[in-house]
Each structure stands twice: as C-alpha cells, then as structure tokens.
C-alpha cells in the first residue's frame, strides 16, 4: 500500500501502530533524541551537583547533611500527615459519590466530572487568597493548623482523584453488583465494603498515590498560609544551601516518579485488557498528567 506520507510503506508494517503516518526515521530519531536530552539533562545535572556541590570530587555530604537535619524530618512528617488526612478525606468524599452517580444518576455523570475539574480553572493562588478572606474568622483549630491544608488539598487534587475513581467505577457493573448483593440480603454498607471496594482496589490505589504525591509537592497554598511543609522547607533551604536543596529535589523527584510510574503501568495494563486502541494508557496518564496543573 503506497502511503502518501513519508517513505513508501513496507507491506508488513501497515497494520502496526503507525497505520497512517509514515514519517522518516531520521526525523523521528532527531526529534525524540533532542527532546529526550532536554528531559534527561536536568536529572543528570542535579545528580552531579548533589554529589559534588561546587567543589571537586565526589562526596555525599549534601545528603548526609540533609538527613541529619531534624527539620527535614519534621517537615516530611508534617507533609505525610497532611497527605494521609487528604487521602482519607478524598476517599470518603469521592467513593460514595462516584458509586451513587453510576448507580442512581448516570445522567449527571458528565456534570459531576465537569465539577471535579473546576479547581483547574481557578489558580491555586487565587483560591488561597479566597480561603484567607472567607475562612479567616474560623476557629483556630481549622485555620491555624494544617487541617485547612488537608481540607483544601482534597479539592485541589479532585481533578485527578475524581476521574481515577470515576473510571474505576465505570468499569464495574454497579447496578448488577448492588442488586445481587441486595437479593442476598446484604445491607448497602456491607455491599460497599465487601463487594464494591474490593473491586475498586486499583482505583483506590490510584487515588492514594495521586493525592499523596500532590500533598508532598504542593507549595503555593502551604507557603501562602505560612505552613512549613516539605516543599516549603525545600525552598527555604534553597535560598542558602544550593547543593542540599538540589539533593533534596532529586530525592523528591525520584520519590514522586516511582509511585506515579507504578500507577501508570498498573492502569495501562488494566485498561489494555478492556479497551482497544491503547486508549487506556492515555486516560490513566491523562488523569495523572493533570496533576501538574495543580502541583504548580
């Protein structure tokens, strides 16, 4: 089959992923090579900087200084606590909602999804400003403690967490499962706990990872509300000790990349079984992707 784009098609390659576009190999190698370099070089530079600092020779001093810094651990602990709170609250808010929507009100599924994307429309700096003015008079136990961060992070992470669970619930036949449970005499709570939740494992895992990664990386709201979380402390260090801050960043990057890659792979494998055209990978990574818009 002669293709009009690029080099003539090899008869064997027609059925592959590249059904339409024939693009020269040189073009592909150059594009992917140059762009790949742009993504790898900062990682290499960080690694080098963190091991040598500005002096000659390899040393681990940046890392040992960092790990022996008590504030590193306090702020990490604080962020982990906020993360756990956010994860639990997110699950409590989202699971019943998505299950309900698919079970009772599938018509409003799209509306709900749109609502969950609203936080992308309002920049987090603006939300913070609004939080200060509208909740400023709330009791100190909420506004004066990181509780307010967890409460807001649930909203800010919603565009990723909601979609993840929504597509997990979508994959189940909720009506049948619930009715089967009911006809066996189980209460709704029992059905949710023993039937639906086990089936939603990977969706829940996705929410846990996405919400947690979001909480560890979030800077804007935490710093503007004057809480010294992990990311805020990183910036404080960066103002005086560059090599420690870069070591810190490298650790933070690697520790967000690992769980995110796991989730991406898990989701693409799951989705690959169910959907054609490899679209599954995309949706899973899309919802992960949108994290950026908030992690900012």
């Amino acid at each position: 089959m002669a293709s009009i784009i690029g080099a003539p098609a090899k008869s064997s390659g027609v059925e592959g992923g590249s059904n339409v576009l024939r693009i020269g190999k040189i073009f592909r190698v150059v594009v992917l090579g140059v762009v790949g370099l742009y993504f790898i070089v900062p990682v290499i530079s960080s690694a080098r900087f963190s091991f040598t600092g500005s002096s000659k020779g390899i040393s681990l001093s940046a890392y040992s200084k960092l790990f022996s810094d008590p504030q590193f651990w306090t702020t990490l602990f604080l962020s982990v606590k906020i993360g756990i709170g956010t994860v639990i609250l997110s699950l409590v808010v989202i699971i019943p909602t998505t299950v309900w929507v698919h079970w009772k009100a599938p018509k409003i599924r799209r509306v709900m999804e749109a609502l969950s994307l609203l936080p992308l429309v309002i920049p987090s700096v603006v939300i913070t400003l609004g939080v200060i003015t509208s909740f400023g008079s709330l009791p100190n136990i909420i506004m004066g403690t990181p509780v307010i961060l967890a409460l807001e992070y649930v909203v800010l992470a919603l565009p990723y967490t909601y979609r993840t669970l929504d597509s997990a619930v979508q994959a189940l036949d909720i009506k049948t499962l619930v009715e089967a449970g009911q006809s066996l005499g189980a209460s709704l709570r029992k059905i949710l706990w023993w039937v639906l939740l086990p089936n939603l494992r990977s969706g829940v895992l996705g929410v846990v990872v996405l919400a947690f990664a979001f909480c560890l990386g979030e800077f804007a709201v935490a710093s503007l509300l004057s809480f010294t979380t992990f990311a805020v402390y990183l910036v404080q260090i960066g103002q005086t000790q560059a090599s420690e801050a870069i070591a810190f960043s490298l650790i933070a990057l690697v520790f967000t990349w690992i769980p995110l890659s796991i989730v991406t792979v898990v989701f693409s494998r799951r989705a690959g079984k169910r959907y054609r055209r490899g679209g599954g990978v995309l949706v899973a990574s899309q919802s992960i992707t949108e994290l950026t818009e908030l992690a900012e």
Partner: peptide
Amino acid sequence: VTAGSGVFANTGGVPLAFSFVATLGNFGLV
C-alpha cells in the same frame, strides 16, 4: 514515552526549579 509523559507532566513545582538551577543556573552543568 506515554508513561514517561504522564510522569514528567507531573514534575512541576519546587523540585523542578532546583534541578534547573543545577542545569542552567550560574554554576549549572549546561
């Protein structure tokens, strides 16, 4: 590339800023 894009698109924020300091800052590698 798809999985990598999903992960890299998520690499905003503070760590990203510092890894670019190590790359293109005054004493950065590049």
